[in-house]
């Protein structure tokens, strides 16, 4: 065995160790509860769901087409939804189109009361009482926010609250890339 080869063989375990360290370090700082959505790149699933204020008004997946928008999954039992609500109001005021999907809330009245007191940032309010629509979207908690393009294709999913940091991050960047709106 030549001398050069011996060095390579001696360095291999060190290299393997460093790779392992890098891998485990990444694991330390990643959030295992954050799952990537299986629906990214796919068209929005079919559904039919009533309006939150007017139960006789039924919406289908067609309302999610036409322009880039956010679909925000929320409920009154979700404290993080309360935390992000003010920021959603701000985004709506800046002209960002947001559609609300109320997910398995305690009651319709409670949800409407929330919107009346905290403000309603949503262009449309879908009321998913038994979670059937959320299941189609692969929702596993609240809040979740989907970015949908003008063709009604899901581009991205954010799990957790939407805030300034998130809006400067991937979610906002992707939205701005689609529209050119919502800057600043």
């Amino acid at each position: 065995m030549s001398k050069q080869w011996r060095w390579v063989v001696l360095l291999l375990p060190l290299l393997a160790f460093l790779v392992l360290v890098g891998f485990l370090m990444r694991g330390l700082f990643s959030d295992p509860t954050e799952l990537s959505s299986a629906l990214v790149g796919k068209p929005v699933p079919q559904f039919s769901v009533p309006d939150i204020y007017d139960p006789s008004q039924i919406y289908t997946e067609e309302v999610l087409k036409g322009e880039p928008m956010l679909l925000n999954v929320w409920a009154t039992w979700c404290p993080t939804c309360r935390a992000e609500h003010e920021y959603l109001n701000q985004l709506a005021a800046e002209g960002v189109t947001i559609i609300g999907l109320n997910y398995k809330d305690d009651s319709r009245d409670k949800a409407i009361n929330w919107l009346n007191t905290l403000g309603d940032p949503y262009r449309l309010n879908l009321f998913d009482a038994n979670g059937a629509v959320a299941l189609e979207f692969g929702v596993y908690g609240a809040p979740e926010t989907f970015l949908i393009d003008a063709d009604g294709r899901i581009r991205y999913r954010h799990v957790g609250d939407v805030n300034e940091r998130v809006w400067q991050g991937e979610l906002g960047q992707r939205y701005r890339a689609l529209t050119g709106k919502g800057e600043g």
Binding site: S37, A38, P45, G138, Y140
Partner: peptide
């Protein structure tokens, strides 16, 4: 299930 929630 996998179509909605992924391989997880």
């Amino acid at each position: 299930m996998v179509a909605r929630y992924g391989d997880f």
